[in-house]
């Protein structure tokens, strides 16, 4: 990770913490802001991936993976934009599913890391477990509006901390001779 990238990660992390605070103080404003930012980001990433598929990756071995990624992310963007108009219970289901899914991915990565005897195993396992616990809590408190605010703030702060911590972590890669 470059220095600039590290700075960017830290700034985004701080912004997420700020959003959590705004959301906690004024839930309605914060809620709309979170939905809008998330949906715009997803839509841009999805469109970029689709453009990349059309111009470059369509002829690549395994290129359809890029197409599917683009469609899924774009769809997620539209869906996220739409959930502004649905009841809290559906937002909770969405959040819960997203957290459980992210947690499962982290735990799978942790299992891989353990197989490779990587020291990152414990960290990934803890992150995965926390994500799954938050997801389960979403399903437990499905109809509680107050809890929705709390869970979003908690999620934002938690992800901000992970992002900032990652910015300070060493990264490794295969060296090509």
């Amino acid at each position: 990770m470059s220095k600039m990238r590290r700075v960017k990660e830290i700034l985004v992390g701080l912004l997420m913490i700020l959003m959590a605070i705004i959301f906690f103080v004024s839930p309605t404003t914060g809620y709309i802001a979170v939905i809008v930012v998330l949906s715009v980001i997803f839509i841009i990433i999805g469109l970029k991936k689709l453009w990349f598929f059309l111009t470059m990756a369509s002829r690549m071995v395994g290129g359809r993976r890029v197409l599917y990624e683009g469609l899924l992310i774009l769809d997620l963007g539209f869906f996220t934009a739409g959930i502004n108009f649905v009841p809290t219970v559906y937002v909770m289901i969405y959040l819960g599913t997203a957290y459980v899914f992210a947690g499962a991915i982290d735990i799978l990565n942790a299992i891989d890391a353990k197989k490779l005897e990587s020291s990152r195993f414990k960290g990934k396992l803890i992150i995965g477990a926390i994500n799954i616990i938050i997801g389960i809590l979403c399903f437990v408190f499905l109809t509680k509006n107050d809890f929705l605010v709390f869970i979003i703030c908690l999620g934002l702060i938690y992800n901000a901390i992970v992002r900032i911590a990652n910015a300070f972590r060493k990264h490794a890669m295969v060296y090509i001779q």
């Binding site: 993976r65 890669m173 295969v174 090509i176």
Partner: peptide
């Protein structure tokens, strides 16, 4: 060992023969 799949076209993991290791 090989570099990990990265869907970003210009990711450094996609340099040279990194995807089939050494």
């Amino acid at each position: 060992t090989a570099s990990i799949y990265q869907s970003n076209e210009n990711n450094i993991m996609n340099l040279g023969h990194g995807r089939i290791g050494h």
